[in-house]
Nucleic acid binder design. Sequence first.
DNA 1: ATGAAGATGAACT
DNA 2: GTTCATCTTCATT
Length: 205
Amino acid sequence: MSTALDASFYSRSPLIVARDLIGKEIVRRLDKYGITLRGLIVETEAYGGSGDPASHACRGATRRNAVMFGEPGRAYIYFTYGNHFCLNFVTGKFRSDKAGAVLIRALEPTSGFEVMQKLRQTEEQLNLTSGPGKLCRALGIDLGLSGLDVTSAKSEIHVRENNTWSGSYQRSPRIGIRKAKEKKWRFFASNNPYVSRKLIYPRIK
DNA sequence: ATGAAGATGAACT
DNA sequence: GTTCATCTTCATT
């Protein structure tokens, strides 16, 4: 029996998957350090396809976003702002869209602190994984892992059920986008210090 | 060939 | 609160 969330979990609307991932445990096996890093997912965002102007997939498939148009349960990883990687899981589709994914925006670290501190070059617990770029660096995630099947516990990245989670979640507009700011497609754990922004409603200009 | 924007983070004032 | 380093990807010329 496998403990990893499987394809049936990911093969739903990105909105449902984004909500249901809150409180789950992400597992990152790092063979290079002979250690496994773990953290609870405390912040996510849902992205669609042609119907979502904020999504990388809004203008159809390109080489960069091709994974988003493929099978649910794969990792979609991209590089941005000249510095950072961001981790997504490919999901099923929202309405008539042909692509969907959930961005992992923040984690609450639960094991592997020392390696995360080394990779992030900071000791500060709250600063280790409290952002999409930060958590990729803390978990040693880069473009080489894009397209990885995450539906097996054998995978070096996968997500597990967490029956000890008893928290609630809130919703807000997504962070850092220019378009579709009205959609409340960001989900985050209530009162959790590891979420990337403290405001429920980010400033709208 | 070229340019602009970007699902960020860090360092500022 | 603000600025800006950094560079890939894609759309346009």
